[in-house]
Structures are given as structure tokens and as C-alpha cells.
Design a protein around this nucleic acid. Structure first.
Lengths: 267, 267
DNA sequence: CCGGGCGGTGAACGGCTTGTGAAAGACCTG
DNA sequence: CAGGTCTTTCACAAGCCGTTCACCGCCCGG
């Protein structure tokens, strides 16, 4: 219980529609939603998809009994046409509901009444969280930086087309650096954005992970340097790596005059 | 109510023939079809294909018991000559072998009696929808990944042409993984899409079924690794499996450059 | 030239995640 | 209702990863 409360507090308010006629259920759930600070609207019957769009909802809690025989179709359309909208089916103990569920209609989750409002909230949150993450990953286009390629939709990084095995932190750190090529990122900011909270004084995690990344990347393309150190500040990612050791003669002279740290790519 | 309007627009009435002699079943289903506004016709025995064409049907619900010895041929011909026509086989208790056999001959789906008329309707709708956009989408098309092949129309998987005995959950999990080769899928997403609802905290079902799949697959092709673990994230399926233990020397240099991590499948 | 601070690096510890076998429970079948 | 299969849950083992620490080298300011 207390856990659920904490969770709903920590998450930002959501916009939810409840499509149900069970007055008792609606009343309890409604109160709970209000207490969580979520904006919600109770609907006595299903509405056209267009109206759902107009409500700018994050999720909808619906009893398919109100949808009749078209429940399946409705849910399928919502799922297909409103990818941002989470759908939690909330049914009575009927067996038909279970069959419908078995037929995989397109809802994200289901709850059987009677149930705790807490549970509904928790499931709605889980569904929305998942939808958001999936959407974000699908939206975030691939990042290409020289031989290096990051594909968020695959959750993977590639060097020269070959996938690099990265842990979660490694991947997120590399993604962050790659997304801002040529830009110097302060340690504090890196930590904040990868770890999600403020860096404690004396924490060396960022350094250690930069080390790990360097090792894994340079194992693939030796004598290329992707991550540069800025003393007293942080790190910088270079998409067009500068060859170390042997300075590539031709570019070297031209390169020294102007571009050294510059982002200006092959162009 | 408004939803009904939406629904009737989206799922237009279908034309269905029911080939069955089970009077109880036919009566119930008939009434339900009428209520859904579908035009339907009950046939006491199988009819020549030409007549089916004349009826301009969207789908046919048929008990193969009525087809007698010609059941196989009939189904095969329907499948071959009437690609627009969905076929839902509705039988009494049958073995998996019989079902698979029927599906192999061209049926799109099957239901076992006794069953809820809702279920029949739902399956017919699904089948018609699938047929309508067939060909273009690989929705129900076979998935081929290296030696592994998945044929949704048979509900079966094959390794090197030999079928693998999989349970429902195993099959669906493998299908999901295969459909996204090279992609890292998070546990929550896997659970959501295979189980159909949100994963509860601490649920280990995905792990257990990955274990089962690994065991069955690797029993067929030892020292090949299909399913890779991404610590703290989820799993990834590799269509072009990497041989474990001994790094294949010759292919290693050539192979590393291109094929390994590539996601781009055949089509 | 020297010293202090900062970053590089390797290793080790602890916690958390996953692998794995088995038992309990749900479901279907006969 | 009995028997089997499939699914879920549980407990323990194994392994990985993230963090921290210590030491050393390097950069920068004096």
C-alpha cells in the first residue's frame, strides 16, 4: 500500500479517462485518482476515437462490457491509431472477458473487479511508462558518428557494422556523448543525465565508465580516439576521430591550422 | 451508443456461411450473427466452390466432419482458389495433430466446440481482417532466421526443416524474438507482448521460458547460441548465431566486418 | 622546478540480476 | 474425477555489474 502511494506521488500527474458505469467502482477509483493529482474524466459509454484524441489522454480505463460486441474492434483501433494511449481493461468476473483477453485484443493490461484502486493506478502507471519508453526509443533516430552507430530502437551500438556489447550504463553514457558530438560535457551534467540524480562529491563513476567505453571502442578500432578529456571540466566526443600516433600526413598540416577540435566533419 | 456508430463504420457487416449440422450450435451462432448485422447462410453440407463464389462470402465457418473424405481437398482448393475467403474450422474435440493438419491445408483458424459465439465472431473478424491486408504485410507471414523458421499459420517452429515441439508460451516468445532479430527487447516489453498484460514486479516467467527455449533449440543445434542475455535489460535473438567456444578463425576476420550484428533480414 | 589537484587505471567488494532445477498450482483431456 | 501437461512460483547457485578504493601519472599554477 504505502509503496504504491509513494510511486504515484513520484510520478507526474497523468490524464486518464474511466469508461464505466459501475458507480461504486467509479467513485472509489475517482477519489483515488484525485488524491494522486491525476486529471481524470468519467465516461458512461465509449466515445469515438476522435473525442479521445481531443482529451489528450495518457491512458484509458475501460470496462469492455460497455463496448458490446465491438469491444475487440474498438480496442484494436485504439491500440493501432493512438500509440501514445495506454489501455487498461477493467472487467467483471465474467468468463467472456477472459476469452476476449485470450484473443489478444490490444489492451495493454487488464484487471478484474473487484479490485483495489491502488492496483488500477499501479497498472496504469506501468502501462504509460512502457508506452512512453517505447515511443521515445522509436522516435529517437539513430546516431551515426563516423564508424560508430547507435540505434536506440535496437538498444545497441555498432562499430563498423559490428555490434558492441555494452552494459546499460555504458550504453547510456555513450549515447549521451554521441548525441552531442564535439560538445564538452561536464561531469556533473553527465552524471545527472545518465544516472538520473546528482553526483556525490568525489564520485569517480563517470571516469570509470569512460575508461570502460574507451577500452571497448578502441578494441574495435585501434588508434582511434573517440572520447577526449577536458581537464577540470569533463569529456567530449569526436565523431570524426583523430588518428593517434601516426599523424595522417596530408590532413595533418591542414588539420593543425584550423580544425583541430572543431566539429566540422568531412564536409 | 456513439461507439456503435463508430464500430459499424469500421467493421462493416460481413457475409458468412456456416457449414454445420449441429442444430444447437448453429442456432446460437445464427442468432448472434444476426444481432451483429452480418448476413449469413447456414449450409447443411459442403457445397461446390462455384456456389461459394456466388454467395460472395467473406468467410466460412465449417465443421470438417461434414466434408468427409474430401475435407482435405476442399480446404486446399478454397485456400488456393479463393484467397479472399477466410476459413474458420469449427470442430468437436480434436487432437493437436488434426488441428495442425487442418491449418496446413489452408484453414485460417480453428475453434473447438463447445465454444462461445462471441469467440467465433471474433475469430472470423480477425481472419477476414488478416486476409484483407494479406500479402502486403508480413503480419502472419513466416519468419525465417537462419536455420530457424516460424510459420504462424501452422503454429509451429522448425530448425533445419524439422519441427520443434513448443508449448503455446514458448512458441509465442520465440516468435516475438525472431520477429525482431538483433534487437534487444526489454523484459517488460516481452512480457507485455507475449502475456498480454503488464508484468508484475519480481515475475521471473520470461527468464524461465527463455531457459526452456534455449534448451529446446540448443538440443537441435548444439553450440549455437540464439538468445543472448543483456544484463539488466532483457534478451536479444541472433538469426546468424555466433558459434561459442571456438572462435571460427577463418570467418572471424571476414565475418566480423559485416554480417554479425546486422539486423537487416531477408525482406 | 616543484607541488597540489585531477584524471587514468587496475583490482576487489558487495549487491543485484540471471541461471537453474524442482515443486506447487492451473488448466485441459479423457 | 483422475491423469497428464503446461504454467507459475520458489529457492538456491552462479555470475555480472556498479561502486569504491588505492596508487600512479599527468596537467596546471606558482
Amino acid at each position: 500500500m504505502s509503496i504504491l502511494t509513494v510511486m504515484s506521488i513520484s510520478s507526474q500527474p497523468l490524464r486518464v479517462a474511466v469508461v464505466d458505469r459501475d458507480s461504486g467502482f467509479v467513485a472509489v477509483l475517482s477519489r483515488r485518482l484525485e488524491r494522486a493529482g491525476w486529471q481524470h474524466r468519467v465516461l458512461g459509454s465509449a466515445v469515438p476515437l476522435e473525442d479521445l484524441v481531443a482529451l489528450r489522454l495518457n491512458a484509458v480505463v475501460v470496462d469492455p462490457a460497455l463496448l458490446g460486441a465491438e469491444a475487440r474492434e474498438w480496442l484494436a483501433r485504439v491500440s493501432a491509431e493512438l500509440p501514445e494511449l495506454g489501455v487498461v481493461v477493467c472487467t467483471g468476473p465474467s468468463t467472456v472477458a477472459q476469452r476476449v483477453h485470450g484473443l489478444r485484443l490490444g489492451a495493454d493490461d487488464w484487471v478484474t473487479k473487484p479490485c483495489h484502486p491502488e492496483e488500477v493506478l499501479a497498472r496504469v502507471e506501468a502501462v504509460v511508462r512502457r508506452r512512453r519508453r517505447a515511443g521515445a526509443r522509436a522516435e529517437a533516430g539513430p546516431v551515426v558518428a563516423g564508424e560508430l552507430e547507435i540505434r536506440p530502437e535496437l538498444f545497441q551500438a555498432f562499430v563498423g557494422g559490428v555490434s558492441v556489447d555494452l552494459t546499460r550504463r555504458e550504453y547510456e553514457l555513450l549515447h549521451l556523448l554521441c548525441a552531442a558530438p564535439g560538445q564538452v560535457l561536464e561531469r556533473e551534467e553527465i552524471y545527472q543525465r545518465v544516472w538520473g540524480y546528482a553526483m556525490a562529491h568525489g564520485d569517480r563513476s563517470v571516469d570509470v565508465f569512460v575508461r570502460k567505453l574507451r577500452r571497448k571502442l578502441e578494441a574495435r578500432s585501434p588508434d582511434w580516439k573517440y572520447i577526449h578529456t577536458h581537464f577540470g571540466i569533463g569529456y567530449r566526443f569526436e565523431p570524426e576521430p583523430v588518428r593517434e600516433g601516426v599523424p595522417t600526413d596530408a590532413p595533418a598540416s591542414a588539420g593543425d591550422t584550423a580544425p583541430a577540435g572543431e566539429t566540422v566533419p568531412a564536409g
